[in-house]
């Protein structure tokens, strides 16, 4: 695989230190990794991603509740995947509800699993 290392410099103000990006929670790293993987796969160019993220951050600028960087990141990814017609809003919402139901249904002390997803995680 090409070491098409994502060009972090071109992103608006990604939280990072000298060695690379910093994450505050696993989901942030997960969201980060999805973008890197999709880019490596050629689903979108890095420039297109950087633009989508910048747009997302700019559009949220006026909102009353400030969001964390990776909340913008996630919203931008959702938007871009809809834009390239890979995952629609409806698909996302339906799947989100399934996860929510799975989270509620899973007994305390057992990992949350989504039907067929078990083998992959």
């Amino acid at each position: 695989m090409a070491s098409a290392i994502a060009d972090l410099e071109s992103l608006p103000a990604i939280p990072r230190d000298d060695d690379g990006p910093l994450f505050q929670a696993p989901w942030e790293a997960q969201a980060f990794a999805m973008v890197v993987a999709l880019h490596e796969r050629g689903v979108f160019t890095w420039q297109r991603w950087a633009d989508a993220l910048a747009r997302e951050i700019a559009s949220a600028d006026g909102s009353s509740k400030p969001k964390g960087y990776y909340e913008h990141w996630l919203a931008a990814l959702e938007g871009l995947l809809a834009e390239v017609e890979l995952i629609s809003f409806e698909q996302r919402e339906a799947r989100r509800s399934q996860w929510e139901a799975a989270a509620i249904a899973s007994p305390h002390g057992e990992p949350i699993r989504l039907l067929d997803d078990l083998k992959k995680r």
Binding site: V43, E78, I104
Partner: peptide
């Protein structure tokens, strides 16, 4: 709830992308 809204959205996206073979 055991997962917050953001975590649910991340899981939703990831599982869809995995199913489509994109990730």
């Amino acid at each position: 709830p055991r997962l917050c809204d953001t975590e649910l959205r991340v899981r939703a996206l990831e599982s869809l992308l995995v199913e489509k073979g994109l990730v």
